Simulated scan of single mutants.
Amino acid sequence: MQTGLLIILAAGLCAVISGLFGMAGGLVFMGIIASLMSVSAAMVVHGVVQSVSNGSRSTILREYIRWDILGWQLLGALPAIALMIWAAFTPDKAQLFLALGLIPLLLWLPRKLLAGDAEKPAHAVLCGAMVMGLNLSAGVAGPALDFFYVKTTLTRKAIVATKAVTMFASHLVKIAYFGIPLLKLSGVNDLPPIWVLIIAMPVVVLGTKLGTLLLERFSDIGFRKYTRILVTIIGAIYVWRGLVLLDFI
């Protein structure tokens, strides 16, 4: 009961963060649930909750979605899905936390070194491949996705809306990728009771709505600045956690 309530509370809080920044909420939520259950179970729960969060956010901001960008991203995502199915890779907890902690470094890559711009078709294809690959290996791909959007000329609403659709589709794939093998382990998997997910869904929708309303208070410049700072702090905490699990600290 306590674990279930913690998952619900974390889901609502992280939905507010995601609604406000378009990312980071998923990063926080994955860290919390990965500490409570197996990696595969955490991937499924994260996928379910985040698909609801992103789905509701994309619905609220549907008029700002850039469907042309999403089409190019799909072309990059398909081969990434095929590669992950062939490799059948599942990280352990140490690998997961290290990956979660290192992903935010993408936000600090110098523009001249590797400029990502999702409005360019070739970059959008690469974005789709990276996001899908990371989401199926690390469980989170928001910072990588943001790397391709922070440098565009899109407004904050267009960024959040288009990224929400991208992550919604990516999370559905993640649910199937980790969930199907997990369900075959009858009596072994540690998925939470179904009531936890049922209650978490409306909580996530409400949190997303609140975060989207708070989004109105940010300027485009401030939005990008605070996103980088927040995700970097979270990443540093996860790197420390991963090193502890590896007995390096």
Rank of each mutant, 00 (worst) to 15 (best):
Y177H: 04
D146I: 09
K157H: 15
S186N: 05
V205R: 02
L215H: 02
L191H: 07
H123C: 08
V205G: 01
K112H: 11
A200S: 09
L197W: 00
K163S: 14
L113P: 06
I199N: 10
T166Q: 10
L206Q: 02
V125G: 05
G128S: 09
L191D: 09
A200H: 00
T162H: 00
D117N: 15
P143D: 12
A169S: 14
N189G: 10
G116A: 10
V205Y: 12
K209N: 05
M201T: 15
I194W: 10
T155R: 15
I194C: 03
P181V: 10
T166R: 06
L114R: 14
T152A: 09
L206V: 15
W108C: 04
P143M: 09
D190V: 06
C127E: 10
L191T: 03
K112D: 08
A122F: 11
V205E: 04
I180E: 05
W195L: 13
L145Y: 03
T153K: 15
V173C: 12
Y177Q: 03
D190S: 09
D117Y: 03
A158Q: 14
L154T: 00
A118W: 05
C127T: 04
W195A: 09
N135K: 04
I199S: 12
H123Q: 09
Y177C: 06
G116E: 10
A200L: 02
L109T: 14
V205S: 02
P110D: 04
A124G: 04
V204Y: 02
C127Y: 01
A141V: 11
P193A: 12
V173N: 08
E119F: 02
D190G: 02
A169W: 11
A138I: 12
A169H: 04
L214K: 08
I198V: 15
G142M: 00
L109G: 05
A176N: 05
L213E: 13
H123I: 02
G211L: 04
G133A: 14
F148K: 11
A144C: 15
G133Q: 10
V188Y: 12
A144S: 13
L213M: 11
S186A: 09
Y149M: 11
M132A: 08
A141T: 12
I159Q: 07
V205N: 00
